[in-house]
Design a protein around this nucleic acid. Structure first.
Lengths: 224, 224
DNA sequence: TCGCTGTTCAAACCGTTGCTTGAATGTCGA
DNA sequence: TCGACATTCAAGCAACGGTTTGAACAGCGA
């Protein structure tokens, strides 16, 4: 065998290695898992419930992700807690989302199908929110399950869990509302903003979710 | 059908969309194509030759990448020139490499298999090279095919194509040598550094390749 | 128009993978 | 030690995807 063919084989093997990272993200259910674990660690059963998948299948997917090095796990008593392996994975996932949003044919239809028409939902970015918060112009609303709120939220944010959106109706009416949730493709904040609009209030969503906020070293408050 | 199931379906569809980006990178040959196109545009035939693949198969892969929005194409006479769709794709690819290098089990063996033992090859980063260049301490060597050198290279770099490494033997001996090529997983620079070592010279490789350098807004010279 | 070249298409083969089902493993509390 | 519960394993099916082969389809130059 010539030297160039052995190099060829080694090169193919190396790039097959890179490809296992791609393959790990090549299934929709696994993509959902990554997005979910970006929120914090979960047990297999928690993941399965949130994805509407069988526990066996979920475990299988988690193993695939673990083999590719994207997630790690840790036994804690009878449960096994899974989490993203590192912040690199978070950035990889953000890069995937960015490319999909910018380049993927038909992506807008998919996003609208899940999130609803988004042109009616005003978006504000990190800096603007910090700015207007400091001036006391806005009310921050965290639209995620209480457990996630407790694990960390934006300072001053009020918890309005997605299954209790009626709490929005009693919010003090003196300020505009900025809602945020898990990330740019999380429905909760959109639902909240639309409900507030129907009440005749001014409301918008934060561009980022909590993981992006944390990743950008935004201030975080913990607890109840 | 209940409202939550329609949402479930729409969510799955959205994440299947994200997954098509992952699927595009889920084959080793396509990963090689992305890395190659990061160097600049190529025709199908050029890509096929560099990958040692049939033209038909290469065309097939390029179509897959195009469907996912990662590459674009443009007819120019009898050729079709393919290129990466945007800088987002470059960053996505960089994120994949980073995760693989940091997290993927067995990656080091794969890398060593292709590139050889790397602990003997000293690495310098962008800032240090700029620094030492400014002080006239180093000789820069561009170890890529002449066409790529002509399309853009680091200012002051001498072209030493990978198939003419013997040119290294006549380099002025008054300075250390820094070699670079296509990227962190490109063999050319390593080959050059090893050859210089055998000549008893001090040599190292630049951490980045030209695409990363350009992406970081490093200075570029054209022609020559 | 014809032939040449670069590119794409279509079909077929075969290995891989996502999901389901049912059983096995492992850990904790009684 | 036993039973309950969370997780993993194994087998099987249907669908998908990478590669090969051979043919079809442009543009271009004569």
């Amino acid at each position: 065998m010539t030297d160039t063919t052995t190099r060829r084989i080694a090169k193919d093997a190396l790039y097959d290695g890179f490809a296992t990272i791609g393959r790990a993200l090549a299934a929709g259910r696994r993509a959902e898992i990554v997005e979910l674990l970006a929120q914090g660690e979960r047990s297999v059963e928690q993941v399965a419930r949130e994805l509407d998948q069988s526990v066996a299948n979920t475990s299988h997917h988690l193993r695939t992700l673990a083999r590719a090095g994207l997630v790690g796990s840790q036994r804690s008593g009878t449960h096994v807690r899974y989490r993203l392996a590192s912040d690199d994975v978070l950035e990889l996932w953000a890069a995937v989302r960015r490319v999909a949003a910018a380049q993927l044919e038909g992506f807008d239809e998919l996003a609208t199908g899940y999130l609803g028409a988004r042109d009616e939902v005003e978006v504000v970015d990190r800096d603007e929110v910090l700015d207007r918060l400091a001036r006391g112009e806005v009310l921050l609303v965290d639209v995620r399950p209480v457990a996630e709120y407790a694990a960390g939220h934006l300072p001053g944010a009020i918890s309005v869990p997605p299954d209790r959106l009626e709490l929005l109706d009693d919010l003090p009416a003196d300020r505009d509302v900025v809602a945020y949730c898990r990330g740019p493709y999380c429905v909760y904040a959109d639902d909240a903003v639309r409900r507030l609009h129907r009440l005749g209030r001014r409301a918008m969503r934060l561009e980022d979710g909590l993981p992006e906020w944390r990743r950008a070293n935004g201030p975080i408050a913990v607890g109840g």
